[in-house]
């Protein structure tokens, strides 16, 4: 009798443990990559929380009139950015002031937004939710709307053990989904692992890239995460001063976050205001368009000179940063019921 009790007790314990193990999500750091910035101990990943975050990411309930979701400006097939729109638009056709950034490898992010206004991934979603040109909503009202939904109450209970929706839990679950947007399986990555080889154009392009671009677009994330002035002439319809708005330091004038170049093939248009429509325009800009100013990155002062053949080679290399597995991974797409 007692033995049976012990055994059934053990069965329950093992059952609970395996439930926990099944729900846990192991975040894998690709080989050779630095340690993530994100502190997973404070928000341990779980399948249920990621599923909830994914549901929220794709749900227009986050916007004031339920028309715009995160996905509206961050589409998976275009590297989670807004293709074709130089400046992304929010509810009621309102046009924002910047090009929505591509979302990937956010666990390594040290700050967020083009100007570094956001200091932690967990509070990033507050910005587009509240911005009057984007979702024009208030996080307290988002919580209120979610609380009214039986389906969400159930999902919050499954994820957090509490059906009471809080701002903290909304934001942490959105973070969890965003953390799973890892792109690390491009041709470039396969070449690095020895599983593939560059053709001669790509190989030459890689050499040129390391010579002219890698100082800011540093491997393996293809960004040094810093704020740089790359010499873009100021668009006087926006007068965007970049990081200086946040730091109040004149030395940061016209500096913007260096974006990753991963999946660059799919994330046009380019720059913080989306002024370039294709990669050829971008390369030509670096050869001929860079404007001198006190905060210009020193590497760009002397200019970059490339032959037309070299331009083609750099672009051939940039295309090896496309990660189809990431762009078409169904686990990152619209959640099907």
């Amino acid at each position: 009798m007692r033995k049976a009790g012990v055994i059934s007790f053990l069965v329950v314990i093992i059952g609970l443990l395996s439930f926990k193990a099944k729900n846990r999500y192991e975040f894998a750091v690709p080989e050779g990559w630095p340690r993530p910035e994100y502190n997973f101990k404070k928000n341990p990943l779980s399948e249920k929380k990621i599923a909830l975050g994914r549901q929220l990411f794709y749900d227009p309930i986050l916007s004031k009139d339920s028309t715009i979701s995160c996905n509206s400006c961050h589409l998976q097939y275009t590297a989670f950015t807004h293709i074709d729109h130089p400046l992304s638009h929010g509810i009621a056709g309102r046009i924002g002031t910047r090009n929505s950034p591509a979302l990937m490898n956010l666990a390594w992010g040290k700050s967020f937004m083009w100007d570094g206004a956001v200091n932690h991934l967990d509070v990033q979603a507050l910005a587009p939710i509240s911005n009057t040109l984007e979702m024009d909503e208030d996080i307290a009202n988002v919580v209120h709307k979610l609380q009214r939904s039986a389906a969400y109450r159930k999902q919050f209970y499954e994820a957090f053990g509490d059906s009471v929706v809080t701002g903290e839990h909304v934001l942490k679950s959105i973070s969890q989904f965003m953390l799973t947007l890892v792109s690390a399986n491009s041709k470039y990555d396969r070449v690095k692992r020895g599983a593939d080889t560059f053709n001669s154009r790509e190989a030459n392009g890689y050499k040129l890239f390391k010579q002219h671009c890698a100082e800011c677009h540093t491997e393996p994330l293809f960004t040094n995460q810093k704020f740089e002035n790359n010499g873009l002439p100021v668009d006087t319809s926006l007068n965007d001063i970049g990081h200086m708005k946040i730091s109040h330091n004149a030395a940061d004038s016209l500096k913007f976050k260096v974006p990753t170049l991963r999946n660059i093939e799919f994330s046009a248009p380019y720059m913080h205001d989306g002024r370039f429509k294709n990669l050829s325009q971008v390369i030509n800009y670096y050869i001929m368009g860079v404007q001198q100013s006190p905060t210009l990155n020193p590497l760009l002062r002397k200019g970059i000179y490339l032959t037309s053949n070299e331009k083609v080679e750099i672009i051939a290399f940039l295309l090896t940063l496309s990660d189809k597995e990431f762009l078409f991974n169904p686990a990152l797409g619209f959640p099907k019921k």
Binding site: N119, V123, L126, A140, G167, E168
Partner: peptide, 24 residues
């Protein structure tokens, strides 16, 4: 605390005491 992401209780961002456009 200002650089620790989202927190709960009185620090929950729904309390209207967290800036959305710039963290803090």
């Amino acid at each position: 605390t200002n650089v620790s992401g989202t927190l709960g209780g009185d620090l929950d961002p729904t309390k209207g005491m967290y800036w959305s456009w710039q963290s803090g």
